[in-house]
């Protein structure tokens, strides 16, 4: 699967309060959560981005709370992929579980705001089209590929446990 979009660049330790502040967690409504995505550190983010755009961040993306509302808000507002140098562990598993594609790579250092980036999730390759540079990343282990291929944890559960 290939994903192509414009990069929105963020720094290290972007936490779940940055992604979606707790004051908005009194709902599970995806469109409402999406509206406030990244609001604390980038006001108006959900209106600025176009469908398919990509978040590019540094170390420890998604640290803090276990709120699944964070990847839901990111996915819901139209972001197609998050690329980071590293992810906090609960955010990582939440993203895998809900089917938000994420990629871990140091290639982040060669991506700048507004660059057009293309990622091939199957091949593990990444291209900065704007700057004509290529990199790669380590694909997920087989166990996670299985969940991703099912379309998320609950789909996998349906196939395996709920007959």
């Amino acid at each position: 699967m290939k994903i192509r979009g414009k990069a929105w660049k963020f720094g290290d330790h972007i936490n779940t309060d940055d992604i979606i502040a707790a004051r908005y967690l009194n709902t599970t409504d995806i469109s409402e959560l999406s509206l406030h995505c990244m609001e604390t550190i980038s006001p108006g983010f959900s209106k600025k981005i176009a469908k398919g755009d990509i978040i590019v961040a540094g170390e420890n993306f998604g640290c803090g709370s276990s709120r699944e509302h964070a990847p839901i808000a990111i996915k819901g507002c139209g972001i197609s992929l998050v690329i980071a140098k590293s992810f906090a562990r609960i955010f990582f598993r939440n993203a895998i579980n809900i089917g938000l594609p994420i990629v871990e790579t140091n290639f982040v250092g060669r991506i700048f705001q507004d660059d057009i980036v293309e990622v091939d999730l199957d091949k593990g390759t990444i291209v900065n089209i704007t700057r004509n540079q290529t990199g790669d990343f380590i694909k997920y282990p087989e166990f996670l590929q299985m969940i991703i291929k099912s379309g998320g944890l609950m789909q996998w559960a349906k196939e395996k446990y709920i007959k």
């Binding site: 803090g64 709370s65 276990s66 699944e68 609960i90 998320g152 944890l153 709920i162």
Partner: peptide, 29 residues
């Protein structure tokens, strides 16, 4: 489904924070 679930390690348990979908999966399985 709360990041501070790691608190319970204080009594020598393995305890970790997870997401809501993890919890839904565990409710079932």
């Amino acid at each position: 489904a709360d990041s501070h679930s790691c608190t319970y390690g204080a009594v020598g348990a393995f305890s970790t924070g997870v997401g809501s979908t993890d919890v839904a999966f565990a409710f079932i399985t």
